[in-house]
């Protein structure tokens, strides 16, 4: 409880002995495992009460529904690990999604309308990073200000007109892999957001674990002073983190914009809270230095599963938010107790 952000166990510790599998397991530290169990338990219990909950269609929908949140949560994970926060992501997703749709209906090639939001996201990220790293404005202040600017600016520019008549082929998030069967096992069509979510998360987890820069993020978040002494440029790392966050937000925005035939060119309400919730429930310590993108992804899926389950098990929808709040508390409490026990066991 004295909590001088001492990461226990240090995720940045590299064990060279184990084989790839055991390493993979150690990447996935306990919070992720707990979440995975909770997710499986939820799927199993609600599924046994109502088999349609885990039927193929709903199962895929649970994974698909929050995929864009999971992608944005990868960036948020890095930001929070570096002891910062970004509360402008929801507004940014609205803005970038609108940019994407506007380009598409004005005749840009499809790939341009997918790529530009990601680049703009990176630019905005760079601007945030610059203000945080070089001008030393706390990230919560920068992004609180930016949230207002983006939200107000978007309405000023679009006056709330929806974007319709999007060209065929724009809808990245509606694309699916072909269904096929192999060895008598029929593999259903997987929507692209699920694949994008898994691939990006895997890349992020490996990069944060094994690349020098990736590990430096943990170092900066865990103990900036020590990181500085060991020759890591905190400023450069923060810039990298915010630019990457912008890229992930950009990808999330494209998924968000291409999911439906209409783009509602406003800021999705409360989206930033969902993304931050996914990251912290996924085990990213707000004290910095701890957490993985994998946990954030599981958490995003879990939130989606809960949302779906609440409809399935006939809990009055009036109670949905209370349940989400309890869920966050319970996972975090479990994590705190586990960490304290680990700390006690290692005689800390």
């Amino acid at each position: 409880m004295t909590a001088t952000a001492k990461p226990v166990p240090t995720p940045a510790r590299r064990d060279d002995t184990g084989n790839f599998v055991s390493r993979l397991i150690s990447i996935v530290s306990s919070q992720e495992i707990i979440l995975l169990f909770v997710l499986i338990a939820l799927l199993a219990s609600v599924g046994s009460a109502n088999p349609r909950y885990v039927a193929e269609r709903n199962f895929i929908n649970i994974f698909n529904g929050n995929a864009y949140i999971a992608v944005a949560a990868i960036g948020m994970t890095m930001v929070i690990i570096s002891r910062n926060i970004d509360i402008s992501v929801g507004s940014l997703i609205g803005v970038l999604g609108t940019i994407s749709g506007t380009l598409a209906i004005n005749g840009s090639p499809i790939w341009v309308s997918w790529l530009v939001p990601i680049l703009v996201g990176a630019l905005v990220g760079a601007a945030i990073g610059f203000m945080v790293a070089y001008l030393r404005i706390p990230s919560i202040v920068v992004t609180l200000g930016l949230l207002s600017i983006l939200k107000g600016g978007l309405i000023t520019v679009t006056s709330g007109e929806w974007i319709t008549d999007l060209p065929e082929g724009f809808f990245l998030a509606q694309m699916k892999t072909p269904a096929f069967s192999i060895l008598g096992l029929s593999i259903p069509a997987i929507p692209s957001p699920i694949i994008i979510m898994f691939v990006l998360t895997l890349i992020a987890v490996l990069w944060m674990r094994y690349s020098q820069t990736g590990r430096a993020i943990y170092a900066v978040g865990g103990n900036a002073e020590a990181a500085r002494l060991s020759g890591i440029s905190e400023k450069r790392i923060l810039m990298t983190v915010f630019i990457l966050n912008g890229v992930f937000v950009g990808i999330a925005a494209v998924l968000w914009a291409t999911q439906l035939s209409i783009i509602q060119s406003t800021v999705p309400p409360g989206l930033e809270l969902q993304i931050i919730t996914a990251a912290v429930v996924g085990g990213v310590s707000i004290l910095g230095g701890v957490g993985t993108a994998f946990g954030a992804m599981i958490a995003a899926i879990l939130l989606s599963a809960i949302n779906s389950a609440l409809v399935f098990i006939d809990i009055s929808p009036y109670w949905f938010r209370a349940v989400v709040g309890i869920l966050i508390l319970v996972t975090v409490l479990a994590d705190m107790l586990r960490r304290r026990r680990t700390a006690a066991a290692s005689g800390d």
Binding site: Y53, N58, N61, L260, Q264, N307, F312
Partner: peptide, 17 residues
Amino acid sequence: QEDNQLSFNQATTLLNK
């Protein structure tokens, strides 16, 4: 809410349920 993504998810869940 007034959120089309959420509306889509909720409607889909109803269909699945």
